[in-house]
């Protein structure tokens, strides 16, 4: 093939390639923006749905919005106050680190369980997992979309 014609075609394809490189860079930026928007300050990072609560506090079936750090216990200074005689004053802590939730037992008397297994160290918590403290069972759920105003 004529080298000159070849050059012409290489340049033509390069132009198209650059158009798509541009679109690709924009797409990456947009995905980054979406991630950032999902972590907007003030927006919730997850929810705890109360599956079982014999003490009535928190109410069964209610769902609690979570900040990046959520402590669970009987003391009123906890983010999630649980009225249950088997729960310690400072029982467990949920933390959102980067992209995932982690749970840690704060040396409670009766222990913390995830899907029935005892929590011995800091361990990751997935959406849908059920956390048990005392007789209260809480299920971690995905956050609601930040802008559900309408």
């Amino acid at each position: 093939m004529d080298p000159f014609l070849l050059t012409v075609w290489v340049v033509r394809l390069l132009f198209l390639g650059l158009l798509y490189l541009f679109l690709f860079r924009i797409a990456r930026a947009l995905v980054g923006d979406l991630r950032a928007a999902a972590r907007e300050p003030g927006a919730e990072l997850g929810r705890l749905v109360v599956v079982a609560s014999p003490g009535g506090e928190p109410e069964e079936g209610s769902s609690l919005a979570l900040d990046a750090i959520a402590t669970i216990g009987r003391d009123v200074n906890n983010a999630i106050v649980v009225e249950d005689q088997f729960v310690s004053a400072e029982h467990a802590i949920l933390t959102f680190r980067g992209r995932a939730w982690y749970i840690e037992d704060l040396g409670s008397t009766n222990g913390t369980f995830v899907n029935g297994a005892p929590v011995t160290e800091v361990m990751p918590l997935g959406y849908g997992d059920v956390v048990q403290v005392g007789q209260v069972r809480l299920r971690l759920e995905r956050p609601r979309p930040a802008r559900a105003r309408r």
């Binding site: 390069l14 132009f15 541009f22 860079r25």
Partner: peptide, 21 residues
């Protein structure tokens, strides 16, 4: 800045393509 750099490169290449054609 980065996106505009790609725009500049595309236009230069497009212009060259026009001239070659």
């Amino acid at each position: 800045t980065r996106l505009l750099a790609i725009v500049a490169a595309s236009l230069v290449v497009g212009s060259v393509s026009l001239a070659l054609t």
